[in-house]
Every structure is written in C-alpha cells, then in structure tokens.
C-alpha cells in the first residue's frame, strides 16, 4: 500500500449528511472486477439523472477536475459493507475524505486501501464546506501534523492512532499477521481442544 503523508490537492464539497455506501456506489455496478475501474460509478444516483445526464454536482465541474480531497457531512459511508464504495472514491481520484463521522465498516475499508478518513468537528466541516462553496479550490491535509490548511485558520482533524501509523507507513495487515503464524496455530489448537463445540458438526 502506498504511504499517505501530505495531500495538497483540489478539494470538492459534498454538503450532504448520511451519504450511505448504496449512494457512493449503487449495487448494480458491483459485478465488475476491480480492474475495470469503479470511478465512473461514484455517487451515480446523485451525479446523473434518469438519462445519465450530469446534474451539475461540484464533483463534475471542470474547475474541480482532479480533486483528491472530498469534504462531506456526518455519517459518511454508513450502511452496506461494500468495499466497492472505497474503490469508486479511489478510482475517481480521491485520497482523503474529510467528515465529522464515518460508517464503521466503511472507515476500516478506507484505511485498508490507503484512503484517509479525516474526522473534523461539525463546525469545522461546515467552515470547510462554506469556503469551498465560496470558490476555494485547494486544501492541504497533513497526516503527520493532523492539520488541514488552505481555508483560513488551520483545522485539526482526528484519526485513530493505529490507522494513522498504518497509513503513514503503508502497512498491510496481512504481512503483520503472517509474522504471528505460530502463535495463531498454538492458540487455536488449545482453543479448539477447550471448546470442541465450535467445530461444525457434519451437516
């Protein structure tokens, strides 16, 4: 996974609360293998009308082209566990989402793919959304200092310390787990001997 340190890039406002993962990527697009690219499906129902005509969201405005930072309202990414929601954001070009809170499973999925969930207060989210709405184009998100600059006074953000390290170093859980293989084997042998009912009976 590519490490994340500082993202200075075009930012895009999405002033909506409870943007669930069904909205981030509608289920009908999820048959595709990842290699097909999921960016075109991002927020499809919000961005396009019934005949696939663009509805003029900032996400599709020419001056926000190449945006890597998305700013949204609370509970971004609640709902379905579909990791395809993260693929859609990443394939569109995003590296960071700033919001007051995130869906639980979604936030884990973000970090597992190197996408930064930057948590800000509701007031700060409104301030950032206001500045972007007023025409501000670029923000800088620094994971080392946990600061967002570019919209007047610097805004602090929180991120779980374990996630922060993982993102800063581009660590992958799997490599770490594999290094504990012997412990896992010893633990599970003992556990299954103590709790034999855990193993499924023959159906």
């Amino acid at each position: 996974m590519k490490p994340v340190r500082r993202i200075e890039a075009i930012a895009c406002p999405l002033p909506i609360a409870n943007v669930d993962t069904d909205q981030i990527i509608p289920a009908r697009f999820m048959q595709q293998p990842r290699a097909a690219g999921y960016g075109g499906f991002l927020l499809h129902g919000l961005r396009f009308g019934p005949d696939c005509e663009p509805l003029g969201l900032p996400l599709d405005s020419p001056e926000r082209a190449g945006a890597r930072i998305l700013v949204a309202r609370r509970n971004f990414g609640g709902g379905s566990s579909r990791e395809a929601a993260v693929y859609a954001l990443m394939d569109f070009g995003f590296s960071c989402v700033i919001a007051p809170s995130f869906g639980d499973i979604f936030a884990s999925n973000m970090v597992n793919n190197g996408l930064l969930p930057a948590r800000v207060s509701e007031d700060d989210a409104e301030r950032l959304l206001g500045a972007l709405d007023a025409g501000l184009l670029t923000l800088a998100v620094d994971l080392e200092t946990q600061m967002i600059s570019g919209a007047g006074e610097v805004v602090g953000f929180s991120v779980d310390p374990v996630w922060r390290l993982k993102l800063l170093n581009g660590w992958n859980d799997l490599d770490l787990t594999m290094s504990h293989r012997d412990e896992i084997d010893a633990w599970s042998t003992d556990y299954l001997a103590r709790c034999p009912w855990v193993l499924p009976a023959a159906g």
Binding site: S81, I105, S108, N113, L174, T177, I184
Partner: peptide, 14 residues
C-alpha cells in the same frame, strides 16, 4: 460485517 480486504484477511489467516 466486514469489507473485502478483511474478507481476504480472514480467508488467508482465520
């Protein structure tokens, strides 16, 4: 519920 990366992790390691 878990995401796809976590599903991959559970498949690989239990």
């Amino acid at each position: 519920g878990i995401g796809a990366s976590e599903v991959g992790h559970v498949l690989s390691t239990g």
